[in-house]
Design a protein around this nucleic acid. Structure first.
Lengths: 222, 222, 222, 222
DNA sequence: GATGAATGAGTGTTCATTCAT
DNA sequence: CATGAATGAACACTCATTCAT
């Protein structure tokens, strides 16, 4: 039985290497992944269509066989990464019973998306949001609602069980802040592991003791 | 009778109304404040020099008598707001003794900058960081170090006093995340007060009990 | 009992419905007729090869199995409509003896082409002429010469018979102007009939009296 | 007293040489006149903004200090030439009493615009009409209404006086056709004079006799 | 024949920046 | 200091045409 942590690196039978930014290796997928990286590095406005084309090895005009406008590329990057990470988050909590374990699963999953395999696209989701037209923003928001629903279920349970006393919507926002900010400082090569970071954040939510207990249970499995 | 909270709205004898985004009402200050708002609303790249000029009531060519390049405007916005908020944070902790009270003062001060009077410029600081050349980024970072020093002092004390057990650098990053993210959701007109939010965040750092006690102490002082 | 007027709606045994813009219903003919409509509605330059392909239900690349370049499509539209209308004009005057009747037959035939079944292609002939390369213009002009020859014969006879006194070449140009301009204002659904219009124009050439007499004669024949 | 024919070559004290296409010699006027010529020669769609800029001796980007879009250049060409020729037509009929003389004045004036000094812009007006957006077409049409009003007044009088019996609106359309078509064939260097052509057209409207009589009166003045 | 992905030169337009006045 | 016309490089996007399948 694959341990819980490994669970969310496999989606639809593909390994992480094949799914950088949650994109498959079709021409379209490659294009989106290259766009995600460029958008993160230079920003949407400073990334030219020619930059993307060069990265994929085609001519700039050919981009427009795949996407009608540059903005549509941005939207596709965002929509794909939301879908991919929603599916991953769903799998991460599936079959996990204890509320704190469920919280840890969500935090791990979210960190995986923010500083792990889809970190480029997730950074774009946060920092280039404004470059999307209102209409496209609404579409992306609708997709994101499913993702947020998973979080609110778990947070409601934790609060009901007395793990914290503040409003769960506010709590979710604090978590989002802590998690999404990690993309600015987390060092893939550093000694801090994703799992350490997940527990660090979980401790801010349910306290040091609760996480310590949950943690020991998980460790006992291995 | 200047209550502690009011303390950090006055800097150098000016009222908040005169110091939107921490800028004075000189031509330069007005220009920077207008730029801050535009940069936040449309992003640096999508804001044209003409936009800024129009806002201030001059011609686009005249902008370049004040700043050599558009990027220098961005840098000035960031540098000014860092300086302004560093000074404010310094005043906020001056004369406050109890570690948890010092934490609360810092959180309040940071929130004031992020969702209060300098919210536009602060948003620019976070979201347009990438638009700065590396050289200018380094300069701004140096300015920011003083600000961060204030935080690390307090967090070190809190940790030494046993209020939390995790690394204080990591803790600072989690706080930064929670605080800076508020600019995406905090509603000035909503029922949630800045003070509520400050305590909510402080609870994530030192736990619910410690904040409850500090809170009552602070109120008792008045 | 095929009245004279009906005569020029049948060419090569096909009915008008089958010969929109003078094109047959082969793939090539359909393509040309669609192109004629699009060229008239949007202009040659604003009509894309994809537009034409979509109209005919094929892919844009397939167009080039029928025509080597887009300009060749334009030329084919023009050449076909000139040929078609030349043949029609020939039939219209065949067997008509009286000079004024011959004039009326020509005017009717020309109006039929301009505001009748081939109106789209004829509009293209006039308005997109410049889009043809000089070489192709010369080819089309050569085709047009036959058509113009029919007119000049009749006008020469009328002038010789004293129906008007101006130069017949100039007269032909005035007629061309009056007739071709009708495509900008003639309303198919309006109360003005093609026959009325034909007489109106003929009156400008040979005077009111001459047309009135010819008209009565023609009507008396039936 | 300047003879009638000379009257419409002077507008607002400027000579024809200074008012090619009815434009003054300001940067804007030069730009419009160059655009008119290019639009006529190559068509609106095939004329690039760079073509126009090159003609005027500026950079392509500078065009957009004068006009917001390329279409606005087209509209300005049309609007200016309509205004200019309306004023000219008004002056041409001012003080002319006899109905046939008034007709001749109008025909001369219209020919002057179509094959004379404003021939380039007038050709654009006819052939590039479709390149104007519906909104701009409506604006231009409103301008043109004043011009057409001058014509209809005169034609109504002629008809009332029995000079012709057909509807005056239809008559105006036939005249428009004859006149505007002249731009396709009239040769400035040929032996046919504008005055000859004017009389040729007038004869189509009121008959040979009426024009002959009017003509002698006018000649008598000189 | 038909497809459709790809090309690549070209289009209208933008905009930070300059500079003569 | 301010103006505003001009620059010129760059941009997103278009489209006739090609060609391997």
């Amino acid at each position: 039985m694959a341990p819980a942590f490994d669970g969310f690196t496999r989606v639809a039978g593909m390994t992480q290497a094949q799914r950088i930014n949650g994109m498959d290796d079709s021409p379209r997928g490659k294009l989106l992944s290259a766009a995600a990286r460029l958008f993160r590095d230079k920003g949407f406005d400073r990334t030219t269509v020619r930059d993307i084309a060069r990265e994929v090895g085609i001519q700039s005009g050919s981009i427009f066989h795949h996407f009608p406008t540059k903005e549509d590329i941005l939207f596709a990057v965002m929509a794909e990464v939301i879908r991919f990470n929603t599916e991953r988050l769903q799998r991460a909590v599936d079959g996990v019973e204890a509320p704190v374990d469920r919280l840890l699963a969500l935090v791990r999953g979210e960190l995986q998306s923010i500083i792990g395999d889809t970190r480029e696209a997730m950074s774009v989701l946060v920092y280039e949001w404004r470059c999307l037209s209102p209409a496209k923003q609404a579409q992306a928001l609708a997709l994101r609602d499913i993702y947020e629903g998973l979080w609110l279920d778990v947070l409601r349970d934790l609060r009901a069980a007395g793990y914290f006393h503040d409003d769960e919507f506010l709590m979710r926002r604090l978590i989002t802040g802590m998690a999404s900010w990690t993309n600015t400082w987390f060092d893939q090569q550093g000694s801090l592991q994703l799992e350490d970071l997940a527990r660090l954040i979980a401790r801010r939510v349910v306290g040091e003791e609760a996480v310590a207990l949950a943690g020991q249970g998980a460790r006992g499995d291995r």
